[in-house]
Write a protein that binds this DNA or RNA. Structure first.
Length: 155
DNA sequence: GCCAACGTTGGC
DNA sequence: GCCAACGTTGGC
């Protein structure tokens, strides 16, 4: 089983690294993009390391670390009519959306801001920095991951 | 299967 | 709040 590295975006107003800390573990539910779903279904496995990114935040940036804690399962919110993530086309027999459980590892004392990430030339190939990149789950190389963690420690 | 219209993301 | 970039939808 190969360990991979990921960046996962969440709006802290909706679900922050501190919410994950309180819960310990949580399903990464509500993803409604096929590419992001496929990463969770096909490419993630237990133990993968995750950079928890706060989007639509002040400042936007990496707020902490987590780990994938199990295999992908059908996203329960697709079956829930009251959920804003309800999908009328999904059935229990044929789910459309899947999500992985994620376990809290730690939060950074200070968010590693997008502006600082952007300023580091070594990270110019980071998907997050590509023009128009909106994907909420992105693969990160080991080097990128380690560099980002080191930058977060330096403050 | 094209593509215009529409909705969403997310930085600023 | 603005808006560029992108994904999805649906008419044809």
């Amino acid at each position: 089983m190969r360990e991979r590295h990921w960046l996962m975006k969440s709006e802290p107003e909706v679900f922050s690294i501190h919410d994950l800390e309180k819960k310990g573990e949580s399903l990464w539910d509500g993803v409604r993009n096929y590419q992001a779903r496929n990463f969770m279904m096909q490419d993630m496995s237990r133990g993968d390391r995750v950079l928890f990114y706060h989007s639509n935040a002040e400042p936007p940036g990496v707020a902490g670390l987590a780990r994938v804690s199990g295999p992908a399962v059908p996203d329960p919110s697709q079956f829930e009519p009251k959920s804003e993530h309800f999908d009328p086309k999904a059935t229990r027999e044929k789910p459309i959306w899947y999500c992985v459980p994620v376990r809290f590892e730690r939060s950074f004392p200070e968010v590693l801001a997008l502006a600082d990430i952007r300023a580091n030339k070594k990270l110019k190939d980071l998907l997050l920095l590509k023009r128009g990149q909106r994907l909420s789950i992105q693969p990160v190389t080991l080097n990128q991951f380690e560099l980002l963690v080191a930058m977060a420690r330096e403050r």
